[in-house]
């Protein structure tokens, strides 16, 4: 995935079944953000892989004061990339015959 300067990682082991999964997001490179970034640390949250939209969560982070509105796209893309990877891994690990 593209290096957005915002890192999103799994915050729990993925059992491949749960739709809601714990993620952790933090800024690795503040220079890649458009707005001034206040170093708050890592943000832990849960994300529903089936029913939620990464950009909506990014917007909630903006409204909660973690990021400025001008960075909502970069945060949303970072979450989207990680979610896509998790879904791709799940598809690959579906046991044959299922």
């Amino acid at each position: 995935a593209e290096d957005t300067g915002v890192r999103v990682e799994l915050n729990e082991e993925d059992d491949g079944k749960k739709s809601s999964i714990a993620l952790k997001l933090w800024v690795e490179d503040p220079k890649k953000l458009k707005g001034k970034y206040k170093d708050t640390g890592a943000i832990e949250f849960t994300f529903d892989l089936v029913n939620e939209i990464p950009e909506v969560v990014a917007q909630e982070m903006v409204e909660s004061g973690f990021f400025l509105d001008c960075d909502v796209k970069i945060v949303g893309k970072s979450i989207r990339d990680r979610v896509a990877l998790i879904k791709w891994r799940r598809e690959r690990t579906v046991s044959p015959g299922n």
Binding site: R7, E9, K24, W26, E28, D29, T40, G41, A42, I43, E44, F45, T46, V57, E60, M61, E63, S64, G65, F66
Partner: peptide, 27 residues
Amino acid sequence: SATAQVVHSAGRRFIVSPVPEARLKEQ
């Protein structure tokens, strides 16, 4: 502990914690 909780009006809970040092990008 350095953790803090922020609950968004939509009901989502964000927990702020320190970034693991090993995961910080090398400068």
